[in-house]
Amino acid sequence: MAQTRSGRRPSLEAIHAEIKRIEQRRERQKEVGGIIGRILFVVMAVMLLNIYVLRIATVSGASMEPTLRGGDVVLCSPLGYKPDYGDIVVTELDIGEGDLAKRVIALAGDTVDIDPGTGAVSVNGKVIDEPYIAEPIHEKPDMEFPAVVPRGRVFILGDNRNNSVDSRKEIVGMVPESTILGKVVFRIWPLGGFGPI
């Protein structure tokens, strides 16, 4: 058995105290490891939920007013989502404004037209009812109408038609379905607007 610096062997009590200190250190390490493991599990679970079940997005700008306002925080559901008429979606297209939140107006194969006089939007020859818009379109679009939505794409517009960068602009155009993060289903902020969309 090792001797102490004074040349004497350690006492039995000193050996037991050292063993107890080692055991306590191992217990603390186990506890810390357990806490770190739980934190990593929660982080991974949140990441997986955010990717596959519900995604969080923040609305940027005034393009979806009055339905959504800049700074609103919404939940999007990507799980098995296929675009449908009237859905508000978030797309990951990057035009320098963050994720785009817009409304699906037309799907692949549809013919979209915008009447330059009234600003009315029609899909496949029928004017669509849009009680959610701030006002009809007054500004001239970048593209020619009528236009057919290509396969694998959708035509999206902001509800605030005269203050929206959307499918009428070349910078966005007809949006690939693959860039859609999901359908907006719930507003979580501000609390005054908390609830389903």
Score class of each variant (00 low, 15 high):
33 G>W: 07
33 G>Y: 03
34 G>M: 14
35 I>S: 10
38 R>V: 04
42 V>S: 14
42 V>N: 13
45 A>M: 13
46 V>G: 07
46 V>H: 02
50 N>C: 02
53 V>D: 06
56 I>D: 05
56 I>F: 05
57 A>W: 13
57 A>M: 13
57 A>K: 12
58 T>F: 06
59 V>M: 03
60 S>W: 05
63 S>G: 06
63 S>T: 02
66 P>Q: 14
71 G>I: 02
71 G>W: 00
72 D>W: 00
74 V>W: 02
76 C>E: 05
77 S>M: 12
79 L>R: 04
84 D>E: 13
84 D>M: 04
86 G>M: 04
87 D>E: 07
89 V>M: 05
90 V>F: 06
91 T>K: 06
93 L>Q: 14
94 D>I: 04
95 I>T: 11
99 D>F: 11
100 L>I: 07
103 R>H: 05
103 R>E: 08
104 V>R: 10
107 L>H: 11
107 L>W: 08
108 A>E: 15
111 T>G: 04
113 D>R: 00
113 D>P: 09
115 D>P: 01
118 T>D: 00
118 T>N: 05
119 G>D: 03
119 G>K: 00
121 V>F: 00
121 V>T: 03
122 S>D: 04
126 K>D: 13
130 E>W: 06
130 E>D: 07
134 A>V: 11
135 E>T: 08
135 E>W: 04
136 P>N: 15
138 H>M: 12
140 K>Q: 06
140 K>T: 13
150 P>V: 00
153 R>M: 12
154 V>P: 03
158 G>I: 03
165 V>W: 06
168 R>E: 00
170 E>A: 12
170 E>Y: 11
170 E>L: 14
170 E>G: 07
